[in-house]
């Protein structure tokens, strides 16, 4: 019997990353722009998707939504369907994040030929989704004012992989002790120059700027 050391050096999430790349290729082949939307529970992910659908619907864009939840509920996907767009609900069975396999399965259930945009609403969680690539073109985080201004300092990983940051519920700024400079300083350390859009899904403030950014990606 011999004892040997074998060098491997393989990323632990290699299999997931590989499949994520497949998903991205598939979406690109269909000329679809795609978004992985991450946030804490209740930060306004579904509200933001609905506001985006409302803004895009006038221009006849078709948007598919993948809804991730840890329980077998269809509350969020029902809202998307009610707004006239196809949605697939994924029940992660308690898992704290979506992964590339779940997204691949969901893509099989969407009419990809008809779509311009796919938005994935990840499970409400600031830790785990950061590690799992889904294969979307853009990683977007919604931070909402009531969560507090210290979140970049407490959950640094999720900020580091972002392409866009949405700061939601700015209509609540007058009522909440939220130091925007302190918040932005934390973001700047983690992700210098990160594009951000302060919005309120309730009043519609700021949604136009976001909409212009998105439209440029769609055309």
């Amino acid at each position: 019997m011999t004892q040997n050391r074998i060098k491997i050096v393989e990323n632990i999430l290699n299999a997931n990353d590989h499949l994520a790349n497949e998903n991205r290729r598939r979406l690109s082949q269909h000329d679809i722009f795609s978004i992985n939307l991450m946030a804490s529970p209740g930060s306004g992910k579904t509200s933001f998707i609905l506001a985006t659908i409302k803004a895009l619907i006038a221009d006849a864009y078709q948007i598919g939504v993948i809804e991730g939840d840890t329980a077998p509920v269809t509350i969020d996907s029902d809202k998307i369907n009610a707004a006239g767009m196809p949605a697939v609900q994924i029940n992660t069975g308690g898992e704290c994040h979506l992964d590339a396999v779940m997204v691949e399965n969901a893509l099989n259930q969407l009419p990809l030929d008809a779509l311009d945009l796919v938005i994935v609403e990840n499970v409400g969680n600031l830790i785990c989704p950061a590690a799992w690539q889904l294969g979307t073109h853009s990683n977007i985080l919604i931070a909402s004012v009531p969560e507090g201004d210290d979140k970049p300092y407490k959950y640094p990983n999720i900020y580091r992989g972002l392409d866009v940051l949405i700061i939601n519920k700015i209509d609540l700024l007058p009522y909440i002790d939220f130091d925007m400079d302190y918040f932005r300083r934390g973001v700047e350390i983690l992700n210098p120059g990160l594009r951000s859009f302060p919005v309120s899904c309730t009043t519609g403030e700021g949604i136009d700027d976001w909409f212009h950014w998105l439209k440029a990606k769609l055309s």
Binding site: M1, Q3, N4, R5, I6, K7, I8, V9, A131
Partner: peptide, 11 residues
């Protein structure tokens, strides 16, 4: 860093 660097095996 997040990888599996090596394994030690018998054969």
């Amino acid at each position: 860093e997040f990888h599996l660097e090596s394994i030690e095996i018998q054969r």
